[in-house]
Design a protein around this nucleic acid. Structure first.
Lengths: 184, 184
DNA sequence: AGAAATCTACCATTCGGTAAATATACTGTC
DNA sequence: GACAGTATATTTACCGAATGGTAGATTTCT
């Protein structure tokens, strides 16, 4: 599953095969089919685990006594880590690009991931707005969704540019949008 | 090339084959290989044309006597059109997702597309800032790059959600970020 | 007649997937 | 602790279909 995850993030669902995983592990294709009968079973299991682990990471951030500003920065940091680790993309944006290769169940999984991101951000944004750390005119949920869209796009463009500094710059600029001028 | 473009936008580079195009046209595979010897030749030609046509559309917008606000809205409209047309993605974000399937030449083409988007936006933003239509603290180019990242992510998430209203909502919110409060 | 385009008929390779044999690991019994 | 029985896992050896691609004959257009 680790290797499957990496391969989807790097090449996409249609860009790797059972043979690739088998070779990476040093095992035979059929052994993988024993655990994951079809490729979609595999990717679904990987997706489920990915989403759970990502949610745990968000929860872990929430559990720490951070400021709202720090929380958002740590959120962007999670997506930066993915990019930093061999310039991978978020599994879910990768799979969202290949959406038409998947059945409805998997599509719903993807939307659950994006929604969960937005809900987590909503809380942080709501708190931060009250504390004066953030300024935005729309609702916290609307701002949250905008950030999710932004971070996915930022990751995509940064990888394409071949420079993680591109991501950092984009995030810095979005943080400037979010925070009151006098706090910069 | 039309069909090739559509197929990449809908399924991705690794999600279609020469046979798919042949069937759609009602022609044989070999006939396509006559015009485009390899699949990468095909996609490169499609990409080149796509970029050129998109630049023409941007130029056409610039040529009209629009306000800067209208220009940005028409920009978002171009990406909306793609989404509206059978929920396709921008060719370049689709290919950027599958970046590792392509040689450096194609990767550079993709970055040229994104850069050109940013440069076009930069002009509009710069003008709009001076006219008071837009408010942002960073440079026009930085805001432009942020918008490019945002619009790509917005398209991806909207298609995943299966609701073009998702895109509209995201764009509306980003426009609120860009424009002074009193002008809303 | 000559050029351009399309055709038929292939090719080797890879794809996801399966059946059946074999090997490995665990478990209760004496 | 040795042993048999049983699940678990991995293997070999396939399968049919699809992949990108090619050679050469044939058709179509100018």
């Amino acid at each position: 599953m680790d290797i499957g995850l990496t391969l989807v993030q790097e090449r996409g669902y249609n860009g790797f095969s059972y043979a690739d995983i088998a070779e990476a592990i040093g095992i035979r294709k059929a052994s993988i089919h024993y655990h994951f009968p079809s490729k979609q079973d595999l990717v679904q299991a990987v997706l489920l685990r990915y989403r759970k682990e990502f949610m745990d990471k968000l929860q872990h951030i929430s559990d720490q006594p951070h400021s709202c500003l720090q929380n958002i920065q740590l959120f962007f940091g999670l997506y930066r880590d993915t990019l930093e680790n061999n310039t991978k993309l978020c599994l879910c944006s990768m799979m969202a690009a290949e959406l038409n290769s998947f059945p409805p169940e998997i599509r719903e999984e993807l939307n659950m991931f994006f929604d969960a991101n937005a809900v987590w951000l909503e809380h942080v944004l709501d708190q931060g707005k009250k504390s004066g750390e953030f300024t935005f005119s729309m609702s916290a949920m609307e701002q949250a969704k905008t950030i999710v869209a932004f971070v996915q796009g930022a990751q995509l463009l940064s990888r394409s540019s071949g420079d993680i500094g591109y991501y950092d710059s984009l995030v810095t600029n979005y943080m400037a949008i979010l925070t009151p001028v006098n706090l910069l």
